[in-house]
Nucleic acid binder design. Structure first.
Length: 481
RNA sequence: GGCCCAUUCGUCUAGUGGUUAGGACACGGCGUUCUCAACGCCGGAACAAGGGUUCGACUCCCUUAUGGGUCACCA
């Protein structure tokens, strides 16, 4: 049988991390089995539908290369299908019309809560005669269609992650199938569509386990075979609760804007609930498809650990070719107010290369490379290396300034500079730290940064690079004086 | 509260009756070094508890505890 999976989000907001992982697993399982991955939009709640959400979902899947083979199917365009199926259920007496008002339902629930019994519909409208129903329908009375759950039945199903799950029908409510606005509820729509779309594996979050028995009832009422159910563990926030907006960003879009790479995000999210059972940690999409299996899904929820995401993201950044890093960093550099057209590409590339090992996310790049684009300002005391006397530092900087001026800008390669300057230091019996530390601070104004040789190397890609370097050294001597 | 699901280092996890309980992130130390990264080496750190079953339990069973999910004309 062909493997067909579907991602079935409701367009109530931006695609979030949990949705991304679900889509990933569905995608992987389909690809792994040469099956089909389908996108279906569960937009059956008119009130909660957010404009732009559908576009965001489609675009994000595209950006992350989780290409779907069919869809997007919109449930809001399939209303007649659900209605027809609900009526079929009514005919089979597996469902019934209900005309109860919201007030009655609320009162009923209150009463049950007061008695500390689980709130359930009391099957009030099941007692209506055929004529009564006909009359009310003809009068146009508002109504819904409810599933008729028979008491004292065991409902069993197999979940590929959790194994056998067994529930009593007494714990199930007479779920509304068709709402009074004519739209189906999730439960009806999901079952009808999964069947009609020949979905082989329903992969979704574990919060759906409690409603799966209702779905089983529907499948059997229709006389259909159920698909395989795969309930994935939840992604948890630091608090151990289901990841939610309360504990920080959850929209995929926000992570991308912060400079997390789609590949890194996918790699990270894949490991939240799944593990290849090897010691390999870094996987591209191709490898994930290769290694993925439902049997390797975990059961317990997984906490979303930003530290590990940062590590993976940094690792992907480090492995990137410089041209690619350049291309991806452009928006962040622009945002930092750097006019890229004013600088040679080679210069920007060298600058990025310097920071490549240090970046955890792309959004940090603007701030980190700032000293290349504007004169640093800093406290002069920062120029002092450890407990070195101020006079020695001043003297070293002045001598350094003269020495650098004698150097040919064409020989500003990192290796050459290092060799030349270190030889010069030795020649003059200076202390390395008392030269290189103030040099570096003069160039960057920072207590932590890349080394002075590579910074000078980068500056040399500018027509006036050497002058800039000398000017900064001189400025440092003035500051210190 | 009813029902359901889960439980190995702080976090992600390996482990399917006999292991010095392994790896990764984070953390600490050391090395490299002008600083910070990156890199390398080292280190601390876990089987929720109690009963069984067994020659032997992290592994199997039961109970308890804890955590989570769910109980809508939302998905």
């Amino acid at each position: 049988m062909e493997v067909r999976t579907r991602f079935a989000p409701s367009p109530t907001g931006m695609l979030h991390i949990g949705g991304l992982r679900t889509a990933l697993y569905e995608f992987l399982w389909a690809r792994k089995n040469n099956g089909k991955f389908i996108l279906r939009v569960e937009d059956t709640d008119k009130a909660r539908t957010v404009p732009g959400a559908l576009e965001n979902i489609v675009q994000t899947l595209k950006d992350f290369r989780l290409n779907f083979d069919e869809g997007p199917y919109l449930q809001s365009k399939r209303l007649d299908i659900y209605k027809k199926h609900a009526e079929e259920l009514v005919e089979k007496q597996a469902a019934y019309y209900c005309f109860c008002t919201e007030e009655r339902l609320v009162a009923l629930r209150k009463e049950q809560e007061a008695k500390k019994i689980p709130p359930k519909y009391d099957k009030h409208c099941l007692k209506l005669s055929a004529d009564e129903i006909k009359g009310k329908l003809q009068n146009g009375e508002p109504h819904v269609i409810r599933l008729n759950v028979l008491p004292n039945k065991r409902i069993r199903f197999t979940d590929l992650v959790h194994g056998e799950i067994d529930v009593s029908s007494n714990d199930l409510d007479d779920q509304v199938l068709i709402k009074s606005d004519g739209f189906p509820t999730y439960h009806l729509a999901v079952v009808v569509d999964d069947h009609l779309m020949k979905i082989s594996h329903v992969i979704r979050g574990e919060e759906w386990i409690p409603s799966t028995p209702k779905h089983i009832l529907l499948y059997s009422a229709f006389g259909w075979e159920s698909p395989q159910f795969v309930h994935t563990p939840n992604i948890l926030g630091k608090s151990g609760k289901k990841l939610s907006k309360r504990e920080g960003e959850v929209a995929v879009k926000d992570f991308v804007e912060k400079g997390y790479l789609p590949e890194a995000l996918l790699n990270f999210v894949a490991f939240l609930g799944w593990n290849p059972k090897t010691e390999q940690e870094i996987f591209n999409l191709r490898e994930l498809v290769d290694q993925f299996s439902l049997a390797k899904l975990n059961r317990a929820g997984a906490v979303f650990d930003l530290d590990k995401l940062d590590w993976i993201n940094g690792l992907y950044i480090r492995r990137m070719k410089i041209e690619e890093l350049f291309a991806r960093a452009v928006p962040y550099l622009v945002k930092a107010g750097i006019n890229l057209q004013d600088y040679p590409k080679q210069f920007i590339e060298k600058v990025l290369q310097l920071e490549q090992d240090r970046l955890k996310k792309l959004s940090e790049v603007g701030e980190r490379v700032g000293y290349f684009f504007r004169e640093p300002s800093y406290d002069p005391s920062l120029l002092i290396w450890k407990n070195a006397p101020k006079e020695a530092i001043l003297k070293n900087l002045e001598a350094l300034s003269s020495f650098v001026q004698t150097l040919d800008p064409k020989e500003f390669s990192k290796e050459n500079l290092e060799q030349k300057i270190k030889a010069w230091i030795a020649q003059n019996n200076m202390k390395t730290g008392e030269v290189l530390w103030p040099l570096r601070v003069a160039l960057t104004g920072l207590d932590a940064s890349p080394g002075p040789f590579e910074i000078m190397d980068a500056f040399s890609a500018l027509p006036n690079g050497k002058e800039l370097v000398v000017r900064r050294i001189n400025k440092a001597t003035e500051l210190l004086f």
